[in-house]
């Protein structure tokens, strides 16, 4: 496998997770700083089921997602009724707790030295299919009734309630969808690298995803996907930047927040209609006026 397939596969796996974060952070305006811990639940559950119990993958992966969603429900339950700060604070605590748990349960998870021997199943193609599938599902969601309600909740919770929107329910749905997608990303990841350890799923990972969503545009799935490619691709291609990765991200986002708060693409989405518009504009530019 060439270096570029490797990088591309990793980026596509990131796209899956970032798309999940987009539902929560971009659309609903909630911040989970323990999102990577849900990725860990997906990765470890599926990994353990396959390596220790030799469960088939088509059972192990869904099990990882379902467990993550169940845990997400418990974590979300006390927080969705409260102001948004709570979900960030609680998920941050949750992330720390999961890391501690993974480090501690050595017999099951391999502890700090990690879980090894996971079969390498994910390929560039399965990662690509997964990313396309997830993006499709989420863009369908964005244009659905719950998608609209998520955006309404992000914009103004009080007005949303006054319009009959069940705000805690909408927040919970957004949270669980993002948890499910992130956990699925965890399965993809574990079965690609064949190895996971607790240090991969700290709060900085979650913060990185939030940054990618904002860099691309608060309300644009296209933007989130694009910025995942740019932000996670850049340091891979330009190796000497690797150490500066966190700092470059941070500076870029601070610039964006100060000077272009809507993000790179703002609310623009790559829809067939917008695509036609671009092409039409392109043609107009290409054809010199004298031709007609």
């Amino acid at each position: 496998m060439t270096l570029y397939t490797h990088i591309l596969t990793q980026i596509l796996i990131s796209v899956v997770s970032v798309a999940g974060v987009f539902v929560l952070t971009g659309m609903t305006g909630m911040f989970s700083l323990g999102q990577a811990a849900f990725m860990a639940i997906g990765a470890y559950t599926s990994g353990i089921l396959v390596t220790k119990l030799s469960a088939p993958i088509y059972l192990a992966w869904p099990a990882g997602v379902v467990l993550a969603v169940a845990v997400g429900f418990i974590v979300g339950l006390p927080t969705v009724r409260l102001r948004r700060d709570y979900i960030s604070l609680v998920t941050l605590g949750f992330g720390e707790a999961i890391t501690a748990l993974l480090n501690r349960t050595t017999a099951l998870t391999g502890g700090a030295s990690g879980l090894t021997g996971i079969p390498k199943v994910t390929t560039l193609w399965s990662a690509l299919v997964s990313a396309v599938l997830v993006i499709t599902l989420i863009s369908l969601f964005k244009n659905s009734k719950y998608g609209r309600q998520c955006i309404a909740v992000r914009s103004d919770e009080l007005a949303a309630k006054s319009m009959g929107i069940n705000v805690p329910k909408v927040k919970m749905i957004a949270f669980l969808i993002s948890v499910a997608v992130t956990a699925y990303g965890g399965c993809l990841y574990a079965f690609y690298t064949a190895y996971v350890d607790p240090s991969l799923f700290g709060w900085k990972k979650s913060a990185e995803w939030v940054i990618m969503v904002f860099f691309g545009g608060v309300n644009s799935l296209t933007g989130s996907v694009l910025s995942t490619f740019v932000l996670s691709g850049l340091p891979e291609v330009l190796r000497f930047l690797q150490n500066y990765r966190a700092i470059i991200y941070a500076v870029l986002v601070l610039l964006i927040i100060n000077f272009k708060p809507a993000g790179l693409l703002g609310e623009w989405e790559l829809t067939p209609r917008n695509l036609r518009r671009i092409i039409a504009r392109g043609r107009r530019v290409q054809q010199p006026k004298g031709v007609n």
Partner: peptide
């Protein structure tokens, strides 16, 4: 609402 509260982004 007195101070118009529409949903931004929609």
């Amino acid at each position: 609402f007195q101070n118009i509260r529409l949903f931004k982004g929609l």
